[in-house]
Simulated scan of single mutants.
Amino acid sequence: MQEKYKRSENEIMQNWSSKEPILTIICITYNHKDFITRAIEGFLEQETNFAFEIFIHDDCSDDGTKEIIESYATKYPNIIKAFYEEENQYKKGANGRYFFGELSKMARKYIALCEGDDYWNDSKKLQLQVDFLENNPKFVITYHSCSIIDCNDNIVDFSINDWAKFDYRDGKGYDMQRLHLCLPLRCVVYRNVIDFLEPNLMQYAKKIKNADTFLWILLGEYGDVKYIKEIKPAFYRIHIGGVWSMVDEKEKHKMHTNSFYNMAEYFSIKGDVNLASYFLSLSMYYLSCASSVDKMQYSDFTRIPKSILGHKSVYGGGYIHILTSWCYFSATLQVFEKYKRAA
């Protein structure tokens, strides 16, 4: 059993230069009673010279998670703010609201993310990430490495995970916009710069299944990304109740198809033809994977750019010219070749 309340509220706040938070930790949780204590303790272990706050959003848990959150919110009233849903929002398709809804609107200058079944393993994490962002205004997001564990905290064999192949490195905004970097959600701290009042943003954010991916893409417009190798890995947990880790491959392909199609539609309305065509091509790729990946031939798939080139699609009541180049499509072909090798 994870030890609770290891530090008092006064001990956490004693080195803060101001009582006004500059960073918000957003934690989304659902039926994580066996894991949520470790996640919260990881937040409270953070040693910083700045004030931070913790938003914990419980998506209508019915296993005792809510009661654990309530006990922490009572013990740390100046740090923890709890939000409880009366109906499960994820099951209603409201995934995007976690990243683009009221919690982010209320958040401070910086945002850190961690779900209730994952946890941090470095008490200096937030200080290092915020220090870098404070001193490097051209960067919009920082991240660090991540390890995968099971429900008993055992390290999972990396040979069966794509995460073992992560290319941890710095990147440009362009890299995030085209998914050349994969950022582990529980490892990021980013500037709270997205304009939530932008027309159409929430309309599409609510539809997108892979909302964290959409978040990285949007942040790419505002700056570059920094990998901080000095921070110890956070832990991403695979377990039977995991929202993403337990989804089968075909369903993941369907979710990607949905997400990339809505991203294409969003960017087409914004007038960004390059990103619209790029994500439309990715959507078509994952649609093919979901429908008949075992029958799909590489030669069939290479014809997709020709079918898109010069194609007119109706988005938001207006026509736009979708132009997909081989340059933008190369990333998709690399993914396909990787899939073939793994099959």
Rank of each mutant, 00 (worst) to 15 (best):
I69K: 09
F50I: 00
I68P: 06
K66T: 15
F99D: 03
S71V: 02
I54G: 02
N49R: 12
F83P: 00
C60M: 04
N49K: 11
K92Q: 14
I54A: 05
A51H: 00
E70M: 14
F55L: 05
Y84L: 06
F43T: 08
Y72W: 10
G96W: 07
P77H: 06
H57Y: 15
Q46T: 05
A51M: 03
D59G: 00
F50C: 03
I80L: 08
I69T: 07
F99W: 06
D58A: 04
Y98D: 10
Y98S: 10
Y84F: 15
K66H: 10
K91S: 08
E45D: 15
A51S: 06
K91T: 10
E87L: 11
S71C: 09
Y98Q: 09
G96A: 13
S61P: 04
G93C: 07
K81A: 00
F52L: 05
F50K: 03
F55E: 02
G93Y: 04
I68L: 13
T74L: 11
D58C: 00
Y72I: 12
E85S: 12
C60N: 15
E86D: 12
Y98G: 01
Y76G: 04
D58W: 04
F50R: 03
E86T: 15
D63V: 02
N95M: 13
D62N: 14
Q46M: 02
D59Q: 01
D62E: 14
G93N: 10
N78L: 09
E85V: 06
E85D: 14
A73I: 09
E70R: 14
Q46E: 07
Y84W: 08
S71K: 10
F83Q: 01
F52Y: 13
H57I: 14
D58Y: 05
F83V: 02
A73D: 01
A73F: 02
S71I: 07
I80D: 09
N78Y: 00
K75H: 13
I54F: 02
E45G: 11
G64H: 10
R97C: 12
N95V: 11
Y90N: 01
N78S: 07
G93D: 07
K66W: 07
F52D: 03
I80F: 09
E85W: 04
K81S: 03
C60K: 12
T65Q: 08
N95Y: 14
K92E: 11
Y98E: 02
F99R: 06
D63H: 06
Q89W: 04
S61R: 06
N95G: 09
E47T: 15
E47D: 15
G64T: 10
N49L: 09
N95I: 12
T65H: 07
E70Q: 15
I68G: 08
P77K: 10
D63M: 08
E53C: 01
I80M: 04
F43E: 06
N78P: 00
A94C: 14
